[in-house]
Amino acid sequence: MTCSRRNFLKTSGVLATGGLLAAGASDSRAARLAEDFAVGDFAGRYASLFGDQAVSESELIQLILPEIAEDGAVVPVTISSELDGIERLYLLADKNPTPLIAEFELTPLLALHLTARIKLAESSRVTLVARREGQLLRCSRWVKVMRGGCGSG
């Protein structure tokens, strides 16, 4: 009985230590996400995400948005591509108080086709940046918002 209790305590200690290490990792990730999704200006957020990396305009990723959104609180968006190896997507709006709308981490096992609803504070350019094999690909669309969705009237 003592032997199994001793093994239980050893195993519990290892699991607890692993849990604490994982919690520390998630705390640093949570801090990074809080910074990325903080209120700020578009140019500053864009620079913090991509720095001086080259970003190429691409028609190989599709960003489908309505030209006119009746309500900025519920703007439908569809993102799709036939490209393989897209690792991460960043969706930004240049006039939102929080420019980074969404960030998606993808697995190469799935075809890229996402649909969602986003909030836009006012009429603005919505930009999609895809990270693929060390490259950054970008496309953007202008959306005219009839009624704002981020706390405006």
Rank of each mutant, 00 (worst) to 15 (best):
M1H: 09
M1I: 02
S4H: 12
S4V: 09
L9G: 02
K10Q: 12
T11M: 07
S12V: 02
G13F: 06
G13E: 08
G13C: 10
L15K: 07
T17R: 13
G18T: 04
G19L: 09
G19P: 03
L21N: 10
L21P: 01
A22K: 13
A22G: 01
G24K: 10
A25F: 05
S26D: 10
D27M: 10
R29Y: 02
A30F: 05
L33C: 09
D36Y: 12
D36R: 15
F37A: 02
A38C: 08
A38S: 15
G40C: 06
A47I: 01
L49N: 12
S56M: 12
E57Q: 15
S58I: 10
E59T: 15
L60T: 13
I61F: 07
I61A: 09
L65G: 12
P66I: 03
P66C: 10
P66A: 13
I68N: 14
A69K: 01
G72R: 03
G72M: 09
A73H: 07
V74S: 14
P76K: 07
V77Q: 08
G85P: 01
I86S: 00
R88F: 00
L89F: 06
L89H: 04
L89R: 05
Y90N: 07
Y90C: 00
L92S: 03
L92C: 02
K95N: 14
N96S: 12
P99K: 07
P99S: 08
I101S: 03
I101F: 04
E103S: 13
E103D: 10
E105V: 02
T107D: 15
L109P: 00
H113G: 10
R117Q: 15
I118C: 03
I118Y: 09
K119G: 05
E122C: 00
S123K: 04
V126P: 11
T127F: 05
L128H: 13
A130M: 08
A130V: 08
A130Q: 06
G134P: 08
L136W: 01
L136V: 06
C139T: 15
R141F: 00
W142K: 14
V143A: 07
K144N: 11
M146Q: 10
R147H: 10
G148F: 00
G149D: 07
G153D: 10
